[in-house]
Design a protein around this nucleic acid. Structure first.
Length: 381
DNA sequence: GGCGGTTAGACTTCGACGTA
DNA sequence: TACGTCGAAGTCTAACCGCC
């Protein structure tokens, strides 16, 4: 009869090896067969219930995007980590876990994607530790909706497992994508952007809503048929993230012309980042008939104290037909900046008698302004 | 179906200026 | 000098949207 190991000895062994001691070769093979994963390409069980594989692509990115709007200044692409999780549900509460994590990184001319797969719950601690090994503190993390979803989920799992959460600098491509394509696409899901903007055809893909059930079905019945589609879905998400980042960078640098995007939104964004190309873009948009672009640019000049440029724009916009915004701004300019109350009054009358009758609310505002101007003129006389 | 980041619009605050 | 008004800037809030 096998002698029971003394408690002290067992505790010492657990401390050294952890709750799940490493598997020997035979055990590994048995488990692969038991999980059915050995039939799937490239997977190795690196810890109990934690599997890993690497997939190599050509690098779709440039060396760096020194004038990037979405990345930190002079960010090198080799320090970027693209990531995406597949989870057991949508809630970021304690009951949801990531069972598959894809991590994309640049290695010289290659874009390598590491996938970590959890074949059962006890492997989670190993998954998180492995993630910690891969994640580097100085890296910049690129995701899609990761700020809201993936990063919270990962942080929650670290906390639940008593692991330290390191701060990660996150670049979420959802928001720049929304700016560029919100008005062009019906929605800005990654799949829609892939299909309609990046021209990527995924082929048969698994809908995200079905993903949790695939994993639960695998846990209960060991079914791996649909699992491969989940792995592919995750790989595609990671690779698309890289293509998307590259495309956004080319668009902001004015290199891409064949892809549709909201030029007004990009102009605003460039101007916000004090990039002169924003001015050119908004001027071009105004010439194409987009008065909103002119309004935005004129307010920018006004804020900068460049009155001449602002006034030129207001006058130019009015040449193209009556434009309430420009006339009102000119009236403000004459009243408050030049103290030319007579000219301001003429402009207010122009709006009141203009081709488009103002709403009662605006009319009240204009009449109030008119009364004030008449008072000031009388005072001056 | 829960969560939370972003955004646009509403609201508030503040400084400049004119008037009594 | 005190008060009122205006426009600009800053702050707040509600709605939207994408993740599985």
């Amino acid at each position: 009869m096998k002698r029971r190991e003394a408690l002290g000895g067992r505790l010492a062994r657990l401390k050294k090896e952890g709750l799940n001691p490493p598997l020997n070769e035979k055990e590994t093979k048995n488990r692969q067969e038991a999980f059915g994963l050995s039939r799937l390409e490239g997977w190795t069980e690196i810890n109990p219930c934690l599997w890993r594989r690497s997939v190599r692509y050509d690098n779709p990115l440039d060396e760096s995007y020194s004038r990037s709007l979405v990345l930190p200044a002079d960010q090198l692409v080799k320090e970027l980590i693209f990531y995406d999780t597949e989870t057991t549900g949508l809630s970021t509460g304690a009951g949801t876990i990531p069972f598959l994590i894809g991590i994309g990184m640049i290695h010289k001319e290659y874009f390598d994607v590491i996938q970590l797969f959890l074949s059962d719950y006890p492997g989670e601690i190993h998954l998180l530790k492995e993630l910690n090994n891969i994640f580097q503190e100085e890296a910049v993390y690129v995701s899609y909706n990761g700020k809201t979803y993936d990063s919270h989920l990962i942080n929650t799992r670290f906390l639940m497992n008593g692991l330290k959460v390191n701060h990660r600098f996150e670049v979420d491509l959802l928001y720049p994508s929304r700016r560029l394509w919100k008005k062009i696409l019906t929605d800005c899901r990654l799949g829609s952007i892939e299909k309609d903007i990046l021209g990527i055809n995924r082929g048969p893909d698994i809908p995200g809503a079905e993903i949790p059930d695939v994993w639960f079905d695998f846990l209960k019945n060991g079914k791996t048929e649909k699992l491969e589609r989940v792995f592919s879905h995750n790989l595609q998400d990671i690779y698309s993230l890289a293509i998307l980042l590259h495309t956004i960078e080319l668009i902001t640098d004015g290199i891409v012309t064949h892809i549709p995007y909201d030029r007004f939104a990009l102009g605003k964004l460039l101007l916000f980042h004090k990039r002169d190309e924003g001015i050119e873009l908004l001027e071009r948009e105004l010439k194409r008939g987009n008065r909103k672009a002119g309004e935005f640019l004129s307010l920018y000049w006004k804020r900068m104290g460049e009155w001449e440029k602002a006034v030129d724009l207001w006058k130019e916009m009015n040449k193209r037909g009556f434009h309430y915004f420009s006339v009102e701004e000119l009236a403000k300019y004459y009243e408050h900046h030049l103290k030319d109350y007579g000219e301001a009054l003429k402009l207010i009358d122009k709006i009141l008698k203009g081709p488009v009758p103002p709403s009662p609310e605006i009319k009240d505002k204009l009449l109030h302004r008119k009364k004030r101007l008449i008072g000031r003129l009388a005072q001056r006389d």
